[in-house]
Nucleic acid binder design. Structure first.
Length: 787
DNA sequence: AGCACGCCGACT
DNA sequence: GTCGGCGTGCTC
C-alpha cells in the first residue's frame, strides 16, 4: 500500500479526507491540486500534507490524477487560507473555493494526450472517471507522458462556455417585446448586478438563462465575451483610457523625501505596517512608486491595492510608465474567471519579482517573495469584503507581510481612526505630508445654511451663484449627492401613500431614466408609471432629491449648453461607462460632474475649482458609531477634488445643521483635531479601538412560525455565556431595516476584549439554532456599520 | 458539487 | 399504472 495523504476538498463537503498515493503517482508536495474520487463521482482537492494514520471505518481510495507538475499554491498560500479559515470558523476547502478562480477548482476537466505519442492503446482524450478504470500498466504509461509534459489539462467545453461574460450593450428602454419575460429578466438582472458570467446568470435566474442570453446576443441586446474592462487593461501601451498617468516626477518635496526615508527605514528594519498620512494632493503616488523601486531592487514583489477598479487602473498606468519592461499585472474581481485563471497561474509561475496592481482580491494572487503591500486610501470601506467570505484586506495584507518580513504601506488623507490610533500609540510608524505638491493649495471650505430652503429647491442662491461663476470662468465643478436615482420617495397625491417595497418595507426610489421605481436595498423594481396599489390613482409626486434629479436641476440653473455629466452606479452599469465619464470630464468635455460618493475617490481633475456637497447632513445622524468618521472622511475626500491644478479651489457644503461640531474639523480639514475628538468619544463609550465589536445578524422569513422562539433561544444562550466570556451584549433588537427581501431581521451587538470571546459566544448561539433551514444567524466581526 | 434514493403530481 | 419533478442525504 502506498503512502497516505490529506486532501482538502475545494467543493462541498469541503472536508479534509485521506487518500492513498498509487504507485504510479509521482512524489507529492502540499499545495498540489489533484483529482480524487468521492462517492460515485470525483472532485478537485488540494493536498495539504501526509496523513499519519488511516481513519477508521472507511475504505481509503487512491488518488486519481494530479492537475499540475509543480503546485501553483505553496505552503505560504495554504497558511494564509488556513488563517482566514480559522478566523471565519470555516473549512480551508471552503476558503480555497472562494480564493481560486473557477477554472482552477473544477473537477470537470479532460486530459488531452499529445497526438504524436498517444499509442494505439492509449486514447487522445481521457476523463477523470475513465482514469479510475485504467489498468495499472496503462496508468503507468500515461503517467510517464504526464511527467514528460505530453498530457494537458483542459476545462470541459461546457464549463468553459459558461465562463463567458454577459453584459448590456445599451441603457434602457430596450427593444424587446414587453411580454418577453425571460429576456426582460436577464436585462433587469444585468442592470441591477452588472456584467456577469453565464454561469452566475444560470444560478440566479435558472437553467434557461444561458440559452436565452445566447439568443439575445444574436439580436444585439447583450454582448457575450470578455469584459470591456479587461480589454482596456490588456492594452499595455498607448494613450491611457483609465485617465492620464501622472508624468514621472523626480522633484520630491522635502516632506516627500523625509517620508521616503522613513518608509525605507521601516522596510529595512524587518518590515511591518507604516502609515502615510498625507493631505489630498500631497503626492502619495510618487512615494509608492519610489518604494516599489526599492522593493524590486531587493528582488522582492509588490502588491499595490486601490479601493476600486478605476483607481487601480490609474495606478497601473503610473506603474507602467515608471517601470517599462518590468513584469506588471493588473487584477480585479470583475475580470472574467478565465482571465483571472491565466493571471493566477502566471503569477505562480513567475520567477523574478512582479508588480501586482489591483483591488482587494489581488491580495490572494500566489505572489512569492512578497516584499511590500501598498494600500492606497486605506480608510476606504471597500477594502472589507462583506459577502461570501468576510475579510478585511488590511488584516490579510498585515498577515502576509508579517510572514514574509515585508512592508505594509497604508496611505490616506483621512486614515481609519483605528489605524491612526495605532500610529499615535507608536504601534506603527507614521509619516505626515501636510502640503500639496507644486503650487496647489488646499481649497477653502465654506458652509451654506439651507435650513430655510423650500422643499422644491435643492440649491441655495449662494450655491447657484458659485456654480454660474465657475462655469462662466471656464472652470469645472463637482456636485456630490450621496443618493442615486431621481427621487427617494414617490408620494400618491390621491391617498397620501408612498411607494414601498413589499419585501423590505422601505420607500422605493424613482429612477426616471430607467422608467422604474427601485428598492435600493433588495433591487426589486416596478415599471413606472404605475397605479397606486391602495387607491388606483396615478398622480405620484416625487419627493426629495437624487443625483438624477439634481442633474436636471443643474440643466435648468446653468446657462444653456453647459456640459453636465452624471456619475453614479446607474450611469455606470455598463462596464465601460465609468471610464468614459471620468476621462471625458478629465479632458474638460463637460464643466459639471454630478454624482454619488463615487466621485470623491482619489480622482485627479486639475480643472476642478468648485466642489458642492448638496446635502452634507446625509449619514451624519445615523445611529452608528462610525457615522462621524465616515462623514468626515467623505467630505474631506470630496473637498480634496478641488484646486488640484494651478487655480485655487473652493468647497461649499450645504447643511441644515450648521451648528454641528463636526463642521469645525471639516472646514479646517484638520484630521488630528477630528481624531482627538472622535477618539475621546470612542473611549467614553468603549467603542473600537478600545474594544472589539461584532454584529450578530439573525433573520427568518416573515411568515416563519418558529422565528420568534428561535430569537428568544438565542437571547437566552447569549445571556447565559456572556458573563463568563466578558462580553457585553446589546440586543437582539429589530435591525434598522427590520425587513429585507421578505425576511425579518434582528441585530445583536457584541462588545468584548478579544475576538476569541466574541467568536466563542457566537458559536454557542449558532449551536442553539433549532431550525437552520429557515433561521439564519451570521457573525460580522468588526462590522463597517452596526445598522 | 454530483449522484443516488425516495416520495408526490401529470401523462403516453 | 409509469415517467419524472426536485427535497434529502452521503461522500476518505
Amino acid at each position: 500500500m502506498g503512502d497516505l495523504w490529506q486532501v482538502t476538498l475545494v467543493s462541498p463537503p469541503y472536508t479534509v479526507l485521506t487518500y492513498e498515493r498509487p504507485s504510479h503517482f509521482p512524489a507529492m508536495t502540499p499545495g498540489l491540486r489533484v483529482i480524487v474520487p468521492l462517492g460515485r463521482s470525483h472532485r478537485m482537492g488540494v493536498v495539504v500534507g501526509p496523513a499519519r494514520e488511516a481513519p477508521s471505518g472507511v475504505e481509503i481510495k487512491p488518488l486519481i490524477w494530479p492537475l499540475e507538475l509543480t503546485p501553483i499554491l505553496d505552503e505560504d498560500y495554504l497558511d494564509v487560507a488556513d488563517n482566514l479559515a480559522s478566523r471565519q470558523m470555516a473549512s480551508v476547502g471552503r476558503i480555497l473555493e472562494i480564493l481560486l478562480p473557477r477554472g482552477l477548482r473544477t473537477a470537470a476537466v479532460t486530459f488531452r494526450v499529445d497526438r504524436h505519442v498517444a499509442g494505439r492503446d492509449l486514447p487522445g482524450m481521457v476523463r477523470p472517471s475513465e482514469l479510475s478504470r485504467f489498468s495499472p500498466k496503462d496508468l503507468s504509461a500515461l503517467m510517464e507522458l504526464w511527467l514528460a509534459g505530453r498530457m494537458r489539462v483542459r476545462v470541459n467545453a461546457k464549463r468553459e462556455a459558461e465562463e463567458r461574460f454577459v453584459s448590456l450593450v445599451s441603457d434602457p428602454p430596450w427593444a424587446v417585446r414587453p411580454n418577453a419575460k425571460r429576456q426582460l429578466r436577464i436585462l433587469e438582472h444585468l442592470l441591477d448586478n452588472g456584467p456577469q458570467s453565464l454561469f452566475a446568470l444560470k444560478h440566479s435566474l435558472g437553467e434557461w438563462a444561458p440559452d436565452t442570453a445566447a439568443k439575445m446576443e444574436g439580436r444585439g441586446l447583450v454582448a457575450l465575451g470578455e469584459l470591456t474592462a479587461d480589454r482596456l487593461a490588456e492594452v499595455d501601451e498607448g494613450p491611457g483610457r483609465c485617465g492620464e498617468a501622472e508624468p514621472p516626477t523626480y522633484d520630491l518635496t522635502p516632506e516627500q523625501r523625509q517620508t521616503l526615508a522613513e518608509l525605507s527605514a521601516t522596510m529595512d528594519n524587518g518590515g511591518g505596517a507604516h502609515l502615510v498620512h498625507g493631505v489630498t494632493g500631497s503626492g502619495k503616488t510618487v512615494l509608492y512608486l519610489e518604494m516599489i523601486r526599492a522593493s524590486l531592487e531587493r528582488g522582492r514583489s509588490v502588491i499595490l491595492l486601490a479601493p476600486e477598479v478605476a483607481l487601480a487602473c490609474k495606478l497601473y498606468r503610473n506603474v507602467l510608465t515608471h517601470f517599462p519592461g518590468q513584469r506588471t499585472i493588473f487584477y480585479h474581481g470583475y475580470q472574467s474567471p478565465k482571465k483571472r485563471e491565466r493571471t493566477f497561474i502566471g503569477v505562480a509561475r513567475e520567477q523574478g519579482p512582479v508588480i501586482v496592481v489591483g483591488t482587494r482580491s489581488a491580495l490572494f494572487l500566489p505572489v512569492r517573495e512578497l516584499g511590500m503591500v501598498v494600500m492606497d486610501e486605506e480608510h476606504d470601506e471597500s477594502f472589507k469584503q462583506e459577502d461570501r467570505l468576510a475579510y478585511h484586506a488590511k488584516e490579510v495584507a498585515w498577515y502576509r507581510v508579517e510572514r514574509s518580513g515585508g512592508l505594509l504601506v497604508l496611505g490616506s488623507a483621512t486614515p481609519d481612526v483605528k489605524t491612526f490610533h495605532a500610529a499615535r500609540n507608536g504601534a506603527i510608524p507614521l509619516s505626515t505630508l501636510r502640503e500639496r505638491v507644486g503650487d496647489a493649495v488646499l481649497p477653502e471650505v465654506k458652509l451654506v445654511d439651507i435650513g430655510s430652503l423650500s422643499s422644491g429647491q435643492a440649491f441655495a442662491p449662494e450655491t447657484v451663484k458659485a456654480l454660474r461663476e465657475t462655469v462662466k470662468a471656464g472652470g469645472q465643478a463637482i456636485v456630490m449627492l450621496n443618493r442615486r436615482g431621481y427621487a427617494p420617495l414617490m408620494y400618491c397625491l390621491d391617498c397620501g401613500e408612498t411607494v414601498r417595497c413589499p419585501e423590505c418595507e422601505v420607500g422605493m426610489t424613482y429612477h426616471k431614466g430607467r422608467e422604474r421605481v427601485v428598492c435600493h436595498y433588495c433591487g426589486l423594481s416596478y415599471a413606472y408609471p404605475l397605479l397606486c396599489p391602495k387607491c388606483g390613482g396615478s398622480n405620484y409626486v416625487p419627493m426629495g432629491e437624487g443625483t438624477e434629479r439634481l442633474e436636471e436641476r443643474l440643466v435648468e440653473a446653468l446657462p444653456e449648453g453647459t456640459g453636465i455629466l452624471r456619475l453614479d452606479s446607474d450611469a455606470t452599469r455598463r462596464q465601460e461607462r465609468m471610464e468614459e465619464i471620468l476621462s471625458a470630464f478629465g479632458r474638460g468635455e463637460a464643466q459639471v460632474l454630478v454624482g454619488t460618493q463615487m466621485i470623491s475617490k482619489g480622482h485627479h481633475f486639475p480643472g476642478v475649482t468648485l466642489v458642492i456637497v448638496a446635502d452634507g447632513d446625509l449619514g451624519l445622524n445615523l445611529p452608528d458609531y462610525r457615522s462621524a468618521e465616515r462623514t468626515f472622511q467623505l467630505l474631506v475626500q470630496v473637498a480634496g477634488r478641488a484646486g488640484r491644478g494651478d487655480r485655487p479651489g473652493r468647497v461649499l457644503i450645504q447643511t441644515r445643521n450648521p451648528g454641528h461640531p463636526i463642521w469645525n474639523d471639516v472646514l479646517s480639514g484638520d484630521y488630528p483635531a477630528f481624531f482627538e475628538r472622535e477618539i475621546g468619544r470612542r473611549k467614553l463609550f468603549g467603542y473600537p479601538p478600545f474594544s472589539r465589536l461584532a454584529l450578530i445578524r439573525i433573520s427568518y422569513p416573515a411568515d416563519c412560525k418558529n422565528g420568534p422562539a428561535a430569537l428568544s433561544a438565542f437571547k437566552r444562550v447569549l445571556e447565559q455565556y456572556k458573563g463568563g466570556l466578558g462580553v457585553t451584549v446589546l440586543g437582539p433588537a429589530p435591525a434598522p431595516l427590520s425587513m429585507l427581501r421578505g425576511r425579518r431581521r434582528f441585530n445583536c451587538l457584541l462588545k468584548g476584549g478579544d475576538w476569541g470571546a466574541l467568536r466563542t459566544l457566537f458559536a454557542h448561539a449558532a449551536q442553539a439554532n433549532s431550525d437552520p433551514k429557515q433561521v439564519r444567524i451570521s457573525l460580522d466581526l468588526d462590522p463597517l456599520t452596526t445598522l
